[in-house]
Design a binder for these strands. Structure first.
Lengths: 130, 130, 130, 130
DNA sequence: GTGGTCTAGACCACG
DNA sequence: GTGGTCTAGACCACG
């Protein structure tokens, strides 16, 4: 089980924080295919947010094919399947890369340092796979 | 003088586009310490946007320490000040890198593809600097 | 301009009725690329539903790539782009075909009659294209 | 006797799966007019589902006029009654066909592909009848 | 006890 | 005036 933590003061919407953390848990392999997610209402209670907020996060993950829903039984980590075309996937990642680059440059990091940080994060994933 | 271009079709807020371009102009050295920025109203006129939008961008740059304001005289490129320690800057960039990696991996992109997309974006910046 | 009508008594959720009608307006070519959609709040007022309900419908259409959003300016009919893999698209259509078949058989229509009805609807589209 | 199979993994409500299978059994002639249906509780036991679920399915079939109930004796396959006129049946099916066509077209499927998917589903039914 | 839909209304961002 | 996020709470479907 992986705990989910949110920061209410943050600029990042709560539902996106939840999406990011579930995504990370699945991407890293800590949550396996078939694992049940915390129920919408129980997680909402635990995080002290409205149930609609959790539902919104889960809907996003459902849409992206990362989780499945079974009416009346809850949400479960889904078997991986390709939903988006290559072009669409690249488009989506590019939309995340742009603000990263903008922010990193502003903070004074060099291109090499940025690439290096990215590789470090990718490396962590690979280790947890082994 | 460096022209600023905005895209109204984009979903990136206009004020952020302005911020990003001023940052790039300063980071690349095209705008030197002490150079005056275009006045809020003249830039607004040129870009055909609301002057509040330009003012908002300048306020952001002021807050970031990249420009100084002199009451009644306008805005000027500031002497470079380090606001954050190296460790803090790396920490901030890392926080942006992590969700990028999660999303890209769950979308099914390989590590090489992700690194490649990042390098592409960094390359675009370099070109616009020249 | 195409009017949107909803039936509150229906089993079909309001937001899905909106989605279906916008989709039909775009598929039939009555709404062209670049056309603005009614604003979330104005349509909500007109239909006498909550603005969140309209927003939910528009979000769905956005996700499917049928419309674009421009922060602060509204929603517009998007240029067609492929978002889903072939397999995903077939999966989605199949999910709609199954209940259709089930209902039609129950109503006592023959396979030939069902196929014929489908072809009629497809024919209507083709005519409006010419 | 015709076995009824349900899939709990599916997102189709269990009671609807039961309804669909009873309908198919009757439509195909495997269950004849006057045949008794399995009792609510015995079928619930066999399928390992709540008896309310089976009761709900039977209520639906009763409502559709496909089965009759005899207080204290159980449910029986009813004499076929036409409830809706031909025109009404066609109207109802057409209402399901229209959103299917809209969605499929916006997803980029060709008319032939849509017809082909429909025929596939109809084909599945025919096989399960034999 | 699961999730799904909807309302009424607040507060915020962008321009 | 655009849309975006969130709350509190209601009512419903499924089982």
């Amino acid at each position: 089980m992986v705990a989910i933590h949110i920061t209410t003061g943050s600029n990042t919407p709560i539902f996106q924080q939840i999406v990011a953390q579930v995504r990370a848990a699945i991407a890293s392999g800590r949550w396996k295919v078939g694992d049940p997610l915390p129920s919408v209402r129980s997680l909402a209670k635990e995080l002290v947010v409205n149930h609609n907020t959790v539902a919104k996060a889960y809907k996003q993950l459902l849409q992206d094919g990362l989780i499945d829903s079974h009416q009346g039984r809850g949400y479960f980590v889904a078997k991986r399947r390709e939903i988006y075309t290559k072009a669409e996937r690249v488009r989506r990642v590019r939309k995340l890369v742009q603000p990263l680059v903008s922010e990193a440059i502003t903070l004074g990091l060099s291109s090499d340092e940025i690439v290096s940080l990215l590789k470090q994060e990718l490396g962590k994933l690979r280790q947890s796979d082994e």
